[in-house]
Amino acid sequence: MSVLTQTEIEQRLLGLPEWEYYDNAIHAEFEFENFKDCFSAMSRMAFECEALNHHPEWTNEYNVLKITLTTHDAGGVTDKDFKLALAIEHIVEEDEE
C-alpha cells in the first residue's frame, strides 16, 4: 500500500472535518455524553478495526476519545487510514442521532 501525498491527504480531509494531518498521521478527538457512551463507541470501532485489519493508536479519558491513524508498515498515511476514519465517523454520527 502506497503512502498518500500531503496534497492527497489534505484533499481527503475536506470530507472529514473532525480530522487533522500532522506528525505523519491523521488525528481526531471526539467527545461523548459520558464514559459509557465513549466506551461503547470504542467497542463498535474495535470491530471495524479488526475487519479492516488496521488498528489505531487511541486514548480515552472519561468521555473523550483521541485517535491517531497511520500505516506503520507503509511509513505514513494510506488509503487504509481513510477507510478506518470513515468507519469511525459513521459510528460517531450514529451516537449523535
Rank of each mutant, 00 (worst) to 15 (best):
E29A: 09
C49G: 06
T7E: 15
S2H: 13
E93C: 01
F35K: 13
E8T: 06
L4W: 08
E18Q: 10
I9R: 02
Q6M: 00
Q11C: 01
L14D: 07
N53P: 00
E93M: 04
T7Q: 13
F30S: 01
A28W: 06
I91G: 10
I9A: 12
L84K: 09
V92A: 10
F39W: 15
A41G: 10
E93L: 07
E48K: 13
A28D: 06
D23R: 12
I88E: 12
K36L: 10
A46S: 15
L4G: 15
K36G: 12
F82Q: 10
L14W: 00
T59W: 07
L4C: 12
V92W: 13
F39K: 14
L65V: 07
P17E: 02
H90A: 15
D23I: 02
M45Q: 11
F47K: 09
E93V: 08
H72K: 06
F39G: 08
I91L: 11
F32K: 06
A25K: 10
N34P: 07
E48Y: 03
L86C: 15
E93F: 02
W19K: 03
H72R: 03
P17T: 00
E8S: 05
V64R: 14
P56R: 01
V77H: 08
D37R: 15
E48F: 05
E57K: 09
H54S: 11
L16R: 04
A28V: 01
K80I: 03
H72Q: 03
E29W: 02
L69I: 01
E31V: 12
E50N: 07
A41H: 14
R44D: 03
N53H: 11
W58N: 14
E94F: 03
L4R: 14
W19F: 08
E93P: 00
L4S: 15
G75L: 01
T71P: 05
